[in-house]
Amino acid sequence: MANLVALEMPIGVSLVDFIKTCADNHEAFTVLDPNLSPQRRSELLDTLRPTDLIDATGHRQKLEGDPVVDGDGAVVLTSGSAGRPKAAILTWDALQASATLTTQALARDGEQCWLAAIPPMHIGGLAVLLRSVLADASLLFDASIESAPALGATHVAVVRTQLHRYDTSHYQCVLLGGGPPPPSVPDNVTTTWGMTETGSGVLYDRQPLKGVELAVVNGELLIKSPTLFRAYRDRPRPEVSTPDSDGWFPTGDGATLIDGQLQVHGRLANVINSGGEKVWPEDLEELFRAIEGITDLAVVGRDDVEWGQRVTVVAVSDREASELLNRCRALARERFGPWAQPKAIELVSAIPRTSNGKIARGLL
């Protein structure tokens, strides 16, 4: 068995050095945000159950946690967009495979220097650091997204909000993840799909990385990959079989696969069943973002006696609700059909989101 060391420190050189030390000592690690509230910190420690904790000063203390299996490398929290986050265990072999495959796939001219612009508590930000720890990339800290290229940064990983807000045209490669991409992106942007359980992105521009296998069974995306997690902290990894082989991981995402091109629709658990028709909230959210006067939104299904669920828009806006609802209905009818039209709109002051920007649907 091996120790699980919680690294409670900000992103920076010290954090990377301690990750390297864990690798050298054959210990697993998890990254804990030093700015958590006491209650949230206690909740996450209960989920992660580390055996040791190292703080920003380098002080190490023993905790009453549980060790992990030899060979385990990192325990990473899922986004928790649908509720309590799960703690996924990734082996050092899986982390190495992810770092190697992604570094190779994102190679451009010369050496890679990544700006660390995403918090490392989740897999997207952690993967950037591991491309330095386990591959041959270098890292840049303490620079803004727009100033970093002048300081030598060639690569950056961002979420959609950052891509919208900042000029990223001077990077060789911008890796865009964390949710559905916009309809079009600049030439230097690579879109990615992945999840904590797949060890970061395994699809780039809708194509699988080397060694990654895809299948779609009953509308659900299945994955085989050398980057897959070993288990959750409190349960085994779920697996399903296809007629051809065993050991597939059911991602919980709905998808279609046509001529090798994968289209991911969103979480199956989020599908709205209204009058027998299935409505993907992510598709409507993408459509409604273009409506003038809506600053943020989510689409949800509310229980309905007649329809089973009614499509409902939850929006942040200073416009009249009836005006926005009519516009949403017209767009949905034109793009998808009458069955996709929202039946209600709710105006709120803010859309709850997770720490990495995803809609916290469990709070809506």
Rank of each mutant, 00 (worst) to 15 (best):
V128S: 10
V69S: 05
A215T: 06
A153T: 01
R165I: 00
Q341V: 07
S274F: 03
L297N: 01
S322D: 10
T312P: 00
T57Y: 09
I54E: 00
R237A: 15
R165A: 09
T312F: 11
V240M: 03
I145R: 12
D187C: 00
P352Q: 08
R60G: 00
D253P: 01
R233Q: 06
A350Y: 04
D70C: 10
G12A: 10
R319C: 09
G179H: 06
D234M: 04
A82G: 09
R41G: 07
L175F: 00
S355T: 13
R233P: 04
S132D: 09
E306F: 14
E334T: 15
L4I: 03
D283Y: 11
A28C: 00
A74C: 08
A330Q: 15
D46Y: 13
W339E: 14
G260F: 11
W280Y: 14
L101D: 10
T91H: 04
S245K: 12
V348F: 02
W193I: 13
A150F: 00
C113E: 07
T57Q: 14
L297Q: 04
N270I: 05
G65M: 05
L175T: 04
P236V: 02
Q61V: 14
D24N: 11
L203C: 14
G73V: 02
A28N: 02
L176V: 02
W248M: 03
L45Q: 02
E220D: 08
S144K: 13
K343T: 03
V314K: 05
G71D: 03
A97N: 08
W307K: 08
V13R: 13
L126G: 02
V217K: 05
L63V: 13
V212N: 06
I145T: 03
L95H: 12
Y232S: 01
P10K: 05
L324D: 00
G178V: 01
L284S: 05
D33V: 07
R333K: 14
Y166F: 12
D17Y: 00
L297F: 03
T30P: 00
S184C: 08
A344I: 01
I19F: 05
E239M: 00
L95D: 11
E111W: 03
P50S: 01
N218Y: 04
R108M: 08
W307A: 13
A88P: 11
R353I: 07
W193K: 05
R302I: 09
R235L: 08
T242A: 09
T154W: 08
Q162P: 09
L7P: 01
P236N: 02
V305S: 14
G58P: 06
F229K: 02
D167P: 04
L115K: 06
R267F: 14
V305Y: 07
E27W: 14
G110I: 15
V216R: 01
N326E: 11
G65L: 04
D136L: 05
L262V: 11
I272F: 01
V189R: 03
L284M: 12
L203M: 15
D303I: 14
L325D: 02
V69M: 09
W193M: 12
I11E: 09
L44E: 08
V313C: 11
L7W: 09
G124S: 04
E43K: 15
G362I: 13
I223A: 10
D33P: 10
L284N: 01
R84M: 01
T191L: 11
R230C: 02
G293L: 14
G178L: 05
L77V: 10
N270Y: 01
H170E: 12
A56C: 09
D33G: 04
A97W: 14
V216W: 02
D24W: 09
Q39I: 13
S225P: 01
P10I: 13
